[in-house]
């Protein structure tokens, strides 16, 4: 029951954020790039419900448009990570032996880089473009999925229905895709919802450090970095992108919790 409530709550908040972000051209009160230097750092009014940034741009519009970048980068990074991690984990778990040993040592190396350190290192040499941000987040994101898929494949490899499929002459690719991967999708979905929250925070973190999406593109992380210089006189610059980011991450975490409770009751507590 708790799982269902969490899923509903998380999905509802996330759906609102997705609609507002994708529909930004409809919902944004102003053009997010339109400058108005005379009204720089102005607080909220009817035309600018979240106030204006140092260049007089409408913060609400930039928050809505910024959501597009965050969600797109988060989704793309998780999609690529699941794809790479899924293939690596499936090969390691199913083939076993030297392949398993080699691939797991490679994952060990990638796991030796804490959090977004590898992405920071990559973005220090790559041009700060959205595509490169996705690439750098995927470069460390795949490892967790590889471990997860391998563990699941190992636990299913010798099940009777898998052995039966092999005995019936099914080729390894068919056995893995049709009989194994289809049965391990639940934990991967749970992990992916937490992973997307992590990727969105990581993208914002890279932009905050000046290594991600570059101005004038609206990114929540970059908006927080810009607002940091005006904390004393205009705290609203950091308030609204921060709330948007925290709400998105929270909704994904709550959704992930709910999905885990629903799909993996053994973990429920």
């Amino acid at each position: 029951m708790r799982g269902n409530t969490s899923i509903r709550a998380g999905a509802l908040v996330l759906a609102i954020i997705i609609v507002l972000s994708i529909g930004a051209p409809l919902f944004a009160p102003q053009d997010p790039f339109s400058l108005n230097l005379a009204e720089g750092l102005a607080t909220a009014d009817w035309d600018h419900p979240f106030g204006q940034d140092k260049l007089g741009r409408d913060i609400a519009s930039r928050v809505f448009y910024g959501g597009r970048i965050s969600l797109m980068v988060g989704f793309a990074a998780v999609f690529i990570s699941v794809l790479i991690g899924g293939v690596v984990g499936a090969v390691a778990g199913y083939a076993g032996g030297a392949w398993d040993e080699f691939l797991m040592r490679v994952t060990d190396v990638f796991m030796a880089f804490p959090g977004i350190l590898l992405a920071i290192a990559l973005m220090s040499v790559l041009e700060p473009r959205v595509g490169n941000v996705v690439l750098s987040l995927s470069a460390f994101g795949w490892v967790g999925y590889a471990r997860l898929v391998r563990a699941q494949v190992l636990s299913l490899r010798e099940r009777e229905y898998v052995v039966a499929a092999r005995a019936a002459g099914a080729r390894p690719l068919r056995v893995v895709v049709r009989h194994i991967l289809s049965n391990i999708i639940s934990p991967v979905i749970v992990e992916a919802s937490f992973g997307m929250a992590g990727a969105i925070v990581a993208e914002a973190g890279l932009s905050f450090l000046g290594l991600g999406v570059q101005p004038p593109a609206p990114s929540w992380g970059a908006m927080l970095a810009e607002g940091r210089d005006f904390l004393l006189i205009a705290p609203h610059l950091t308030l609204f992108p921060g709330i948007a980011l925290a709400l998105t991450v929270m909704s994904l975490n709550i959704l992930g919790d709910g999905l885990r409770d629903l799909l993996d009751p053994a973990q429920k507590r």
């Binding site: 992380g221 607002g227 705290p235 980011l245 991450v249 929270m250 975490n253």
Partner: peptide, 18 residues
Amino acid sequence: AVLGASIPVFWLGPLLII
């Protein structure tokens, strides 16, 4: 706990400073 785990350090820091 959910709130604490969802607030990124680069937003919490400025909030605490304010």
